[in-house]
Simulated assay, not measured.
Amino acid sequence: MEQQSIAVLKQLFEADKLDETYINKLKLDERKGVQKLIERYERKKLNDKALKENFLRMSQYEQKNYADGCQYIAGMDEAGRGPLAGPVVAAAVILPRDFKLLGLNDSKQLNETTREEYFTIIKNAAVSYGIAIIDNYKIDQINIYEATKLAMYEAINQLNPLPDHVLIDAVSLDQLTCSSESITKGDQKSVSVAAASVLAKVTRDGLMKDLDKKYPGYGFASNMGYGTKQHTAMLAEHGVTPYHRKSFAPVRSIVR
């Protein structure tokens, strides 16, 4: 075969149009540019293998429940239990059995661009999804744990069809009409829970960015309401906003 230019080979690698036999021949090519292309290809191949293995590992809970006869398995997660301001958001999602999104993981481990990309993919692919928002006033009334569970129940009730089984990240829900299991670090162990974590976090982050426009200076667009140095300094200097959780320290001490 005629020797290809490095520019052409780069295009062929990117289009995945080179078979292993030809790539092995290219390994004998002494051009540095060719060797760099091969090194990049090998790294990508190893990365793709790792992503596939991780996705299979994170599908084990779903596959077990499919094998047990479940048809609709929902993943459930929340965002915003710890911040000093803003709502808590819960999401539930039922993914199709053949769903595949390599790289899906706990939303906190994904960068913002990837989270937003996955957010759209998950919503478009889902059999059904629900997103529930409980504001700071309700959080102050019933406490953050109960508010989180309330959001989860509301998100589940939005699903159509309703699930046969629910996988939940580290929370037990005893009033569901179907079976469920609480999984510690479920957003790192279950594809469905990880998908729900993306829906919840992207939704909540968007709400906090909107609050940042109303109350600039507190850093809501970057800290998402968590008690960073900038945030707590602004609290001490300018006081609380209508979106702060007055039952949370140090907000409670400032209100008093």
Results as ranks from 00 to 15, higher is better:
Arg97Cys: 06
Leu102Glu: 15
Asp106Phe: 02
Val127Tyr: 10
Thr113Trp: 00
Ala90Ser: 11
Asn111Trp: 12
Val88Phe: 05
Lys123Gln: 15
Thr114Ser: 10
Val88Leu: 07
Phe99Tyr: 15
Leu101Phe: 14
Asn124Phe: 03
Ala91Tyr: 05
Leu101Ile: 07
Leu110Thr: 10
Leu95Thr: 07
Leu95Lys: 05
Ala126Arg: 11
Val88Glu: 08
Lys100His: 06
Asp106Pro: 14
Asp106Cys: 09
Val127Thr: 15
Ala92Cys: 14
Gly103Ser: 08
Pro96Asp: 14
Glu116Gly: 01
Phe99Gly: 10
Val89Asn: 03
Asn124Gln: 12
Glu112Asn: 11
Gln109Gly: 02
Ile121Lys: 10
Glu112Arg: 07
Lys108Asp: 09
Ser128Glu: 09
Thr120Asn: 05
Ile94Ala: 09
Ser107Gln: 10
Arg97Ala: 10
Ile121Ser: 03
Ile122Lys: 07
Tyr118Ile: 00
Asp106Asn: 15
Ala92Trp: 02
Leu95Ser: 04
Asn105His: 06
Glu116Val: 00
Val89Thr: 09
Thr113Arg: 08
Leu101Trp: 07
Ala90Pro: 05
Ala125Met: 02
Asp98Pro: 11
Ile122Gly: 01
Asn124Pro: 06
Asn105Leu: 04
Gln109Trp: 00
Val89Met: 02
Ala91Gln: 08
Val127Ser: 13
Lys100Met: 15
Phe119Pro: 00
Val88His: 12
Ala125Ser: 15
Ala91Asn: 03
Tyr118Asp: 03
Arg115Val: 02
Leu104His: 11
Ala90Asn: 06
Leu95Cys: 01
Ser128Gln: 13
Ala125Tyr: 04
Val127Cys: 06
Asn124Thr: 12
Thr113Asn: 03
Ala91Arg: 06
Val89Arg: 02
Asn124Met: 08
Thr113Ala: 03
Ile121Tyr: 06
Ile121Asn: 01
Ala126Cys: 07
Lys123Thr: 04
Lys100Gly: 04
Asn124Val: 08
Leu102Ala: 10
Thr120Phe: 01
Asn111Gly: 12
Thr114Glu: 04
Phe119Cys: 00
Val89Pro: 05
Val93Phe: 04
Lys123Tyr: 02
Ser128Met: 10
Asp106Lys: 11
Ile122Pro: 07
Val88Cys: 09
Phe99Leu: 09
Leu101Cys: 15
Ile94Thr: 07
Val93Ile: 15
Asn111Pro: 08
Arg115Lys: 14
Phe99Ala: 11
Arg115Trp: 02
Leu104Gly: 11
Lys108Arg: 15
Ala92Arg: 05
Ile121Asp: 05
Ala90Trp: 01
Lys123Phe: 01
Pro96Cys: 10
Phe119Gln: 01
Val88Ser: 09
Glu116Pro: 01
Thr113Gln: 09
Ile94Tyr: 09
Leu110Cys: 12
Leu95Ile: 03
Ala91Glu: 08
Lys108Gly: 12
Glu116Tyr: 00
Thr114Met: 06
Thr120Met: 01
Asp98Met: 13
Asn111Thr: 10
Arg97Thr: 14
Tyr118Arg: 02
Ile122His: 04
Ile94Met: 13
Leu110Glu: 03
Tyr118Pro: 03
Gln109Pro: 02
Pro96Met: 12
Ser107Met: 04
Ile122Cys: 10
Phe99His: 13
Asn105Tyr: 12
Ile94Ser: 12
